[in-house]
Each structure stands twice: as structure tokens, then as C-alpha cells.
């Protein structure tokens, strides 16, 4: 029986008077690759950011690895170190090299020694294919390379869950492939992932489940073949017909 990594119970999020998430329920098991799709403003990014509390849920529970992380008393920094996040605009630390970007979390949060951290960082950089750029600063790297370093940075922490917020939306088309390749590799090796994306090709190949979000609710959920080939909900059909 697969382990339940994340459970979202009746999640609501208000921005002032505007209700952006209207009651999300989601279960994510180990090795699941969940793709969140839907039109702009549906709440996909907000949902993702509520999982590691970059946005504070207004109501509802987020239970990560058995721990209710919406509880005020929980050690948020420790929880966050076990959830990796990859951002649309990479958010690499510009004053640090690729290697330093990856070792920072290991040294400061995992309290590793520098040599140990650098060894681990080189391993993950190797995995994303950028070991030779370890000492480059972000401004010396292409967009695709920067995003791969960002993935390595999150990966170095050996997270139980990785969140991807439109990881390829800010990239030039010819650079998207290298990033998707890394993500496919991660999925194949069994990383539990939740990905907000418009790349349906990736969803088809790697997703174990696709969730269609619209106006703050999950309208439909199911394996990619079902969602893409025989969607049930009207809005899903409408959305997919515009994209595919």
C-alpha cells in the first residue's frame, strides 16, 4: 500500500474578499506525479504555494507526512526543508555560484559540513547535467541551465515532495526540453511531484494523475489518458480543446 505523503482537506484561501480556493481536497501518494492544469486565475499556483505555506491557507488542513502543517506550532523551517520548490522565475541567488546555491540549504538547515555539502551538491548538479557549471554565477547561465540549477538546489535537500510552479513558462521554447528532460528523469526515479504546467506533453508522459482546476475547485481528476482523451466535465473539454 503506497504511503500517503500529502493530504489536503477542504482548503480555502481568501485574498481579502476574493475567494481563490473554494475547498480543495487532494491526496498525494508516494511516487505520484500530479499535474495541475487549468486556465489562468484558477488557483493552481496559489494551491501549490499553500502546501509549503508561502501563502497561508485561510481554512482547511494540509497534512504532510502525517503532520498537520497548518498548525501554528509546527516547525515550519524543518517542514519546508523536506518539500522542494521550483519557481517559474528560478529565483536563484545571484551573488552565489551554482554550487553555493545548492550547498546553502545543506549547510544552514541540514547543518552539514562544507565538504560533505559540496560533495552532495556536485552529485545533484551531475544529475541535472551541469557539473561543469558548478562555479558559474547565474548570470552566466542560460534560462534552461538556471532552472536546472534551481531543480538541483531543491533536489540536494532530498525532499519527500517536490513542487513545480510553471517551471518552463519563463523559458525560451528551445530551452524547455532540457528542463522537462530533467523532470521526466526525476519522475522515473520515483520522486513525488506536484507540477503546475501548461506542457501537456509532459503531463501525458509522466503524470500518474492530472487535476483540472477552475475557479478554485478541482473539477476533474484522473489518469492522463482519461482526462485528455475522455474528459467528463464541460469546462475541462472546453479548456483542453483550446490547448491541444
Amino acid at each position: 500500500m503506497a504511503k500517503l505523503i500529502l493530504e489536503i482537506q477542504d482548503l480555502h484561501k481568501y485574498f481579502g474578499k476574493l475567494e481563490v480556493l473554494k475547498g480543495i481536497n487532494l491526496k498525494v501518494y508516494e511516487k505520484d506525479v500530479i499535474c495541475l492544469i487549468g486556465p489562468s486565475g484558477a488557483g493552481k499556483s496559489t494551491l501549490l504555494r499553500c502546501i509549503n505555506r508561502l501563502e497561508e491557507p485561510t481554512r482547511g488542513k494540509v497534512i504532510f507526512d502525517g503532520v498537520d502543517i497548518t498548525d501554528r506550532k509546527v516547525n515550519l523551517n524543518k517542514i519546508r526543508s523536506e518539500i522542494g520548490m521550483v519557481f517559474q522565475h528560478f529565483n536563484l541567488f545571484p551573488h552565489m555560484t551554482a554550487l553555493q546555491n545548492c550547498t546553502l540549504g545543506l549547510i544552514k538547515v541540514r547543518k552539514m559540513r562544507k565538504e560533505e555539502a559540496e560533495k552532495k551538491a556536485m552529485e545533484v548538479l551531475e544529475r541535472v547535467g551541469l557539473a561543469q557549471k558548478a562555479h558559474a554565477k547565474p548570470r552566466e547561465l542560460s534560462g534552461g541551465q538556471q532552472q536546472r540549477v534551481a531543480i538541483a538546489r531543491a533536489l540536494a535537500m532530498e525532499p519527500k515532495l517536490m513542487l513545480f510552479d510553471e517551471p518552463t513558462s519563463a523559458l525560451d521554447p528551445e530551452l524547455i526540453g532540457e528542463v522537462l528532460a530533467v523532470m521526466l528523469d526525476l519522475a522515473a526515479r520515483g520522486m513525488t511531484m506536484i507540477v503546475v504546467t501548461h506542457e501537456m506533453g509532459f503531463a501525458r508522459r509522466a503524470a500518474t494523475r492530472v487535476c483540472m482546476l477552475d475557479h478554485g475547485l478541482i473539477l476533474e481528476e484522473g489518469p492522463p489518458e482519461k482526462i485528455f482523451n475522455s474528459p467528463e466535465h464541460e469546462r475541462t473539454k472546453e479548456f483542453l480543446s483550446k490547448i491541444l
Partner: peptide
């Protein structure tokens, strides 16, 4: 300093002080 820098650092699990000291203040 761009919000994204904060978010990336906090997402790694860095505390407020470490984020300030290593990421925000140098910039």
C-alpha cells in the same frame, strides 16, 4: 530585493535570520 529571493530561501527551510544574513542583506 525581489520577493522571489525570500520565497526561494524560505522554501529551502532557511530561517528568517539566515535568509537575511546570506541572501537578502548581501544584495
Amino acid at each position: 530585493i525581489d520577493r522571489g529571493q525570500w520565497e526561494a530561501a524560505r522554501s529551502l527551510g532557511l530561517s528568517f535570520f539566515d535568509t537575511m544574513r546570506h541572501i537578502i542583506l548581501p544584495q
